[in-house]
Design a protein around this nucleic acid. Structure first.
Lengths: 176, 176
DNA sequence: TTCGTATACATCGGCGCCGATATACCGGGT
DNA sequence: ACCCGGTATATCGGCGCCGATGTATACGAA
């Protein structure tokens, strides 16, 4: 979610819109810039909600910048988003990765319990990618076409990596 | 994209809305159901555009089903989507994975050249996840917090798996 | 000189997604 | 007898995202 990314980046230090734009673009891994028509309205919404303030600053190269800074309400709201992400849908990869990126802002390890929920989701969610003509889920090696095999291979690699990471991280959290 | 998933599934055999719903939910890996208010309007749009037709069928358990079937226009349009995905943004993981899932519908290996574009994107896109306070991109081992390290670990695992797969798949395609 | 590109912000229309809500039937449990 | 959960479809309001467009400045290359 955009809101989370904006607040998360601003938590570190004040930034102007254009700077936020490039950082958010890089957040998903491959660089996919978010549209101006997405970012600036989002900033305005957060400002209207009183979560951030702006201060004009001379532009280093071009137009004047608006330096954005979190208010105390913004800091509190970010903490809330990280602790109790609006819902359920931990199954949304983008949201989860964004959350991971800023989870460090919760200093107390006990507040980072969200990773436990994530592991739970991994254990209970059946991860199946396709069904055959009769509606039965298909196993990995049943696929005849290389593209679905590839899809499965890539996803499984990511899942394995994440599960391993969850395991060690939770272990370390519990040691405190 | 929803449109692509609907057309892709229907390419195999006719399905009713509810069935599509469960298949699409599983498509993303973890099961995240798409909302009724998303699916049914999407079906109606495709129907209005003449890409699919519906036939009423008695519901096996409850309400009557509407079996959905691609028209010739629908088949043609799916082929077009697979060959020339609206644009550029191969960087959108969801779209790319959905495309992969149905790329088999292009029988001619020469039409599957989209994977070359994907590899190109991998080679040219700098994949960097975070910047420091001065705006410089940070390397993996510079991260102090375990969450950003995890994010990087997971993403890199997926990237490596995909790149390896791209390499072997392209090799095999070129042998034809 | 002029053009392209990067910086920097803003607005607007369209449209797709989602949650809420409604209807209706069936089977199984209490 | 009753309710709950799963099957099955549909509509609607809200809102967020995106592409297009506009404005303005600075720098380097053609």
């Amino acid at each position: 979610m955009l809101k989370l990314a904006i607040l998360g980046f601003l938590r570190d230090h004040p930034l102007h819109g254009y700077d936020l734009k490039t950082r958010i673009a890089a957040l998903t891994g491959h660089v996919k810039p978010i549209a101006d028509g997405t970012l600036y309205p989002a900033i305005k919404r957060l400002e209207t909600a009183g979560l951030l303030t702006r201060r004009s600053a001379p532009g280093k190269i071009a137009a004047p910048r608006h330096m954005l800074e979190l208010t105390q309400d913004g800091i509190d709201y970010l903490r809330k988003l990280l602790r109790e992400p609006d819902e359920l849908s931990i199954t949304d990869e983008n949201r989860w990765f964004t959350l991971l990126a800023f989870l460090r802002h919760l200093e107390n390890p006990r507040e980072q319990a969200i990773v436990l929920r994530r592991r739970l989701a991994f254990l209970s969610d059946p991860v199946s990618y396709f069904y055959d003509a009769q509606g039965r889920p298909m196993a990995a090696d049943e696929f005849d076409d290389p593209f679905r095999q590839g899809l499965l291979t890539i996803s499984q690699a990511a899942n394995r990596a994440e599960f391993r990471w969850l395991h060690t991280t939770i272990g370390e959290l519990e040691r405190h």
